[in-house]
């Protein structure tokens, strides 16, 4: 692992954290509409796993998608503009927070029907198998998704056809306000994957280095022809499910306990104790992220709204 890579991970972790805080601020100012789901607490998963992908790998996720959009390389300003409903947004103002995508980066988006994108991921992987490429598909979803039929049909199909897909469950302990044990007969989600014959393991989702290693190993197995793989990332969302979550379903003691494992803190302590970076370098990164986000908000503010003609554009490819 090079120093540059560690520092880049640190930058991405901080970027996601600050981006989400800025989004929350903009939401409260009424600049962002609809639903807004923050990734705060889960940053290490998107950063560590996407870092392990090769360029032709697909990425697809659910509606808590800002982080994945950022780490595949979409400029923060294009995401902010999307959430402001501006035509300069990454989905031209038609998708919003939950529907970010950049096909050129093989990022197929945010999907907002729980579990609905799992078969899409299976299909992306099917296309690559059909074309005999070495591309894998990284498919992210929450613990809540593992209770819907889509999950079971997709894992079964991927297992039956041995498709090159890596299922990454971001187990943040709650589907909205319902704890895993209150919604799933099997609380170790890896066991559900094993039922379909997929090699599956649990990973400390708060530690970006462990996420990276596990993802790298799983992707190598896929490319070695060992079929679909499954990782259950154990994590926690520090904020509510979405803006306006009353947080009645968990105690502040529980939240505080998880906050001790802040993914930024874990990497920062590692970097400092191993002398891979000094405090000043990290502060410099924090500052540059802050500046980029200020510029992103400015860009979003100043961008034009979609025109009346845009309403009827892109319903079909062929009119």
């Amino acid at each position: 692992m090079s120093n540059e890579m560690y520092l880049e991970w640190y930058r991405q972790l901080v970027m996601i954290r600050r981006f989400e805080q800025k989004s929350s601020e903009m939401y409260q100012l009424g600049k962002i509409g609809g639903f807004l789901h923050l990734y705060i607490g889960q940053e290490a998963i998107a950063v560590g796993s996407v870092a392990a992908r090769q360029e032709n790998d697909h990425v697809i996720t659910a509606y808590r998608d800002h982080a994945h959009a950022l780490v595949v390389g979409i400029e923060p300003k294009l995401i902010m503009a999307e959430m402001f409903g501006k035509v300069t947004g990454v989905s031209k103002g038609k998708g919003g927070s939950m529907h970010l995508a950049d096909v050129n980066r093989r990022f197929w988006g945010g999907y907002a029907v729980v579990g609905g994108h799992l078969p899409l991921a299976t299909g992306l992987a099917l296309a690559e198998q059909y074309k005999h490429t070495d591309s894998a598909t990284l498919c992210y979803f929450g613990d809540g998704s593992t209770n819907i039929g889509y999950f079971h049909e997709s894992l079964n199909l991927a297992g039956t056809w041995q498709l090159p897909v890596l299922f990454i469950c971001e187990n943040n302990q709650y589907g909205m306000g319902t704890a895993v044990a209150r919604a799933s007969a099997v609380t170790a989600i890896v066991d559900k994957a094993k039922a379909y014959g997929l090699p599956a393991s649990q990973v400390d989702g708060m530690n970006v280095m462990k996420v990276y290693e596990a993802t790298q190993k799983a992707l190598a197995a896929i490319r070695a022809g060992e079929g679909p793989q499954f990782l259950e990332m154990i994590t926690y969302r520090f904020e509510g499910h979405s803006m306006g979550d009353p947080l009645r379903y968990r105690s502040s003691e529980e939240v505080e306990k998880w906050r001790e494992d802040d993914p930024i803190g874990i990497l920062e302590r590692h970097l400092l104790s191993e002398k891979l970076a000094d405090k000043a370098t990290l502060e410099q990164i924090d500052k540059s992220v802050e500046q980029e986000l200020e510029a992103a908000v400015k860009f979003a503010e100043e961008s034009p709204l979609p025109s009346a003609d845009d309403l009827f554009a892109h319903i079909y490819v062929e009119a």
Partner: peptide
């Protein structure tokens, strides 16, 4: 559910 979704995904790719 998987037939519909996987066909759509393969088409997207």
């Amino acid at each position: 559910m998987a037939i519909g979704g996987a066909a759509a995904g393969a088409a997207m790719a």
